[in-house]
Amino acid sequence: MVIWAFLVFAVLAVVFTTLAVVHRSPVVNVLSLVMVFFFLAAIYAVLGMDFLAAIQLIVYSGAVLVLFLFVIMLLNIRRVERFGSGRPVQAALGAAAAIAVGALVVWAVRGLAPVTGGVTPDAFAGGTAAPIGRMLMTTYLFPFELISVVLVAALVGAIALARRES
């Protein structure tokens, strides 16, 4: 059951990622990405990570991608260049590089992954929010503070960049 749900969501995620990368309309790109993030959240939920699934939807679909759509609509970008159009040599090199990076990652990770290992979502019975919160306030307190500084810096930077000089 879990395994079938995972497979269905995985296939759908790949299909919509392809659409997000190749389609010519930026709005369709962003919407496909909304679907991708939705299916990733569904995968997290299926694996028992309910808190992560909710955060994924709230932050990515609810805020980041809405911001993307806002900018696309503000700049009124209707249609952009075709996927892989332009200089053919560079495009071929780019594609080769992307696949090479992917191959490198797979090769690097290959030794780490257990071939037979597998897990059931039962590992997180009782919800993951409480243990995540506890760890955030103990083991990972410093990174947590740091990320808030990063966010504030980004906020100030974004305002400074987008402001009209007057």
């Binding site: 959240a41 909710a54 679909s61 609810g62 809405v66």
Partner: peptide, 11 residues
Amino acid sequence: LYIFAVGSLGV
């Protein structure tokens, strides 16, 4: 959180 997650898609 579920309500906020789904509700944030309404926009």
